[in-house]
Every structure is written in C-alpha cells, then in structure tokens.
Design a protein around this nucleic acid. Structure first.
Lengths: 158, 158
DNA sequence: TCTGAAAATGGACCTTT
DNA sequence: AAAGGTCCATTTTCAGA
C-alpha cells in the first residue's frame, strides 16, 4: 500500500505538490539530486500512483464561480445500489468538487462551487429534493476559503 | 473580477484542469488552436490569475495518510482577532487540506488527511481542546472519497 | 502562422554501493 | 541488482518575423 519513500522522494513530493512547474534541474538542486535522478524518481512516483496526476488549479472567482458551499446529506436508506447511484450522480455533477461518504451524523459531505445562490437552489432541486433517498440536507455557505488544496503532508523529517 | 473567457480559453481550462501535462501542441489539436496560440493563452491565463498554479496531486493512501476526516467547528466568539488567529492556526497545520469559514450552524469546516485516528486525536487536542475559542466541534470520518478535486466548471457550451 | 533558438525531458551508458 | 551521475537526442516551450 504505502510505497517506501525515502527522504529524496519526500522532498520531491513536497516541492511538486506546491509547484508542479519547477523544472527537474531546479528540483535537483533543491533535493540534492542530479536532473536525471529527479526524472527517474518522478516517473517512478507517477507509475506507482504516488503522484496521481498533475493539474492546473483555477481560481473559481475568475471563472464566475465565486460561491463555495458545503452541503451535508442524510440518506433514507443505505442500500448499496441506492448509495452507488447517489455517488454516481454526485461524481458527475460538475459543480461538486468533492464528495465524501462519511460516518456520523451525516452520510455525505459535498463541497460545491457555484455561480450564485440561484444556481445552488437549482442544484438542490436536482440533487436533493427530487431524490427520494435524501432524507434531509444542510447547507453551509462559505464566507471565506481560508485554505484550499489537496496537499498531503510528507514529513520531510523522517 | 471574472475575466472574459472565450470558448477557446474554457476548453483549455477544462483540459488543463484534468491533465496539466498535456503538451501545448496536443492542447492545440483538442481546442482547434495553433501551439503558439495555446502558449500565449496559457501564459495570459496564468498572468491574470485564472490559473492559480500547477500542482501534483498526491495519493494520500500511498504516502501513509489513508484517513480523511471532516471536522466542523463552532467558535465561542467571532471577534476578528480571535478568528484570524484560528484561521492562521488552521492554515499552518499540514494535515488540514482545506478550511472554510462558513455561515450556518457551524463556523469552520475542515478537511483533514491523517495517518490514523491517534493522530487525529492528537490534532483535536492541539487545535480544538486547547483553544478557548472553540465552543464545540463535530467529527465525520470519511469511509470513501467519492470525488476529490478542485476542478471548477468552465461550461464549454457558452 | 511559421521558424528557430533555448530549455526541459528522458534515454543510453557507465560507475558506485 | 539498484540507484546515481554525465552526456546526448528528442521533445517542448516560447519569442520574433
């Protein structure tokens, strides 16, 4: 599962999570490796799935999605096929950035990015009100995106 | 605020959010642009802050952080300096991937990625129990990361 | 839009542990 | 064998005509 990562790998991962555009020679300087070694390691990390993918992170405000919303959903039944169908619906909705199936007071936590409240209202109709398996949901409107990322801690210090 | 984006920009953003490693000539083919045009547009999108940054997305499981947790926090006082201090604490905690300051039943929503429950317990001590301004918090443990990303919808269809 | 220079990537090959 | 380093070919980026 957790591949063995040495200090060099961890350093690389830390850098490249922050800025994937750093050229391999610069990564080499920072991590005390030759460019070729950096190249090999990055390739291996990608092959092993440690690096899942590279992505451009776009500013929601700049593309007309200034509103971030957290929704929590409780379902009526946890029957597998009903859950799967909900998961698929959530996955496919472009406004849903993230969906977690959770244990506790709620069943799903969703992070959405939308144009405005009207669009969110529309989405609640499509996703929640028109779905018989949604028992109730709660909406938390984000006033400030204090920290947003997918960075995973890689503990440079062994 | 929302820069004007034409169909070409939107197409580029859609592609590059999914895979930032596509070479510009390939992006050109997909978006019906010359390589040079792709190059200029990507540069402009980055300069304008539409593309915030490029990042490698690392698999939490593969680096020993298999547990995703959603925490919700209610504060005692919303005094500005107390809030700011909390925000800074949350920002600096490497296990906190995301922090939203929200309106509604709770004040903060946090997404954490941790090694195990023990580490989470430790963090609750540091972040919540030892902070006088935390009135209460709730923990939702993720059983499945159904959808995880920071992708913003860019509506190819104008 | 095309052309070409500069930069970055990634393979070949040899060396070290 | 496994991983590092140097060197070189190929690919990609990116600016000027």
């Amino acid at each position: 599962m957790a591949t063995t990562l040495d200090v060099f790998d961890r350093k690389l991962l830390a850098e490249v999570q922050r800025d994937a555009q750093l050229p391999q020679n610069e990564l080499g300087v920072r991590g005390n490796l030759s460019t070729a070694a950096v190249n090999r390691r990055l390739r291996r990390l990608a092959e092993d799935g440690v690096i899942d993918r590279y992505a451009a992170i776009v500013s929601p405000e700049k593309v007309g999605c200034p509103l971030t919303i957290v929704s929590m959903v409780e379902v009526e039944s946890e029957q597998i096929d009903l859950l799967d169908s909900m998961k698929r619906t959530f996955e496919q909705c472009p406004q849903i950035q993230q969906c977690y199936y959770v244990a506790g007071e709620w069943d799903f936590v969703l992070i959405l990015t939308v144009r405005d409240m009207e669009q969110y209202t529309d989405l609640t109709r499509q996703l929640f009100f028109s779905n018989n398996n949604v028992k109730r949901f709660k909406t938390l409107v984000s006033m400030s995106r204090v920290k947003v990322g997918l960075g995973v801690p890689v503990d440079i210090a062994e």
